[in-house]
Amino acid sequence: MRLNLILAGMLLMAAALAVALGETSLSASQIRSAFFEPLSAPAQILWSIRAPRMAAAALVGGALGLSGAVMQGLLRNPLADPGVLGVSAFSGLAAAGVIALGLTSVPGAVETAALLGASVAGALLTLLAGRLAEPQTLILFGVALSALGGAATALVFNLSPSPVTTAEVLSWLLGSVANRDWSDVARGLAPALPGAILCLVSAPGLSQLTLGEETAALSGLPMDRLRMAAVAGAALLTGAAVSVAGVIGFVGLAAPHLVRRSAHEDPARTLVPSALAGAGLLVVADLAARMIPSAEELKLGVVTALFGAPVFAVVAWRAARSWRG
């Protein structure tokens, strides 16, 4: 509980910074006028540009952090991440397909496709998860789905008629929350909320899995149903994240690691802190993407990958050492 309060406080501070800072620097009095004069230019910048962008980053980070924590608990594997199950790959593939078909002008088409792609992968995994007792087997299917999604996306590039389309697809796959408005945030929340509820419902089952499948099966909890809830919830959250921001890696991996020790390593108690940490991380990463001086604004997915990949390497190193010991 105290951990959640601390993380929520840090998230609020990051959010305040993300709204206050930007390309157009605002003075204290301008920021004050944004609160009291809703039609002023500072109010427009704060409430119609920066705030929804910050909210989108927080939503995507929270969704990825929560689904990462669920996947790690479910698979008993500190290296698991929404990307591992191939849900991100399928989601990105569906979005790429819609862009390549030139349907970007249809409002919400890309987002809907991203969500559908994630749901297809999620439904497939949910079906399998009920039948496979071993979580390692599920990870192998995830790797296969991920490879398939990546290959099919490469095919979209390969067959796409114009370099302009290719650039558009690439920009989506790099991940960004630039120019997101409140309706984008609402469209992301719609699948994210039921996903989060499913994840929280599955929490006691995740804790039981600490001692392996057989002990969990004999705990008296309905493990089959809880496992399905976990997979479906993580898929909905990942789909929501991809539909809002494209493919963003490593948040789902890093967030659970930041909070695990403070949550006494209990997978159930890692979920909410991980969502808060993921939200905070992505708000800060997006602020960095906006503030780091560069000719083109940095893509959020690029920033998280640059910082996330070394984190992944460190985690993998530690995990390998503990597995050997």
């Binding site: 594997n77 039981q208 600490t210 392996g212 057989e214 002990t215 695990r260 209990d266």
Partner: peptide, 22 residues
């Protein structure tokens, strides 16, 4: 108590024991 005594996460002992009381 299965033969495989692999524990996935480094839970404090009492929390691990409390898993017997879900």
């Amino acid at each position: 108590l299965p033969q495989d005594r692999d524990v996935a996460w480094n839970l404090p002992a009492w929390r691990l024991v409390a898993l017997g009381l879900p």
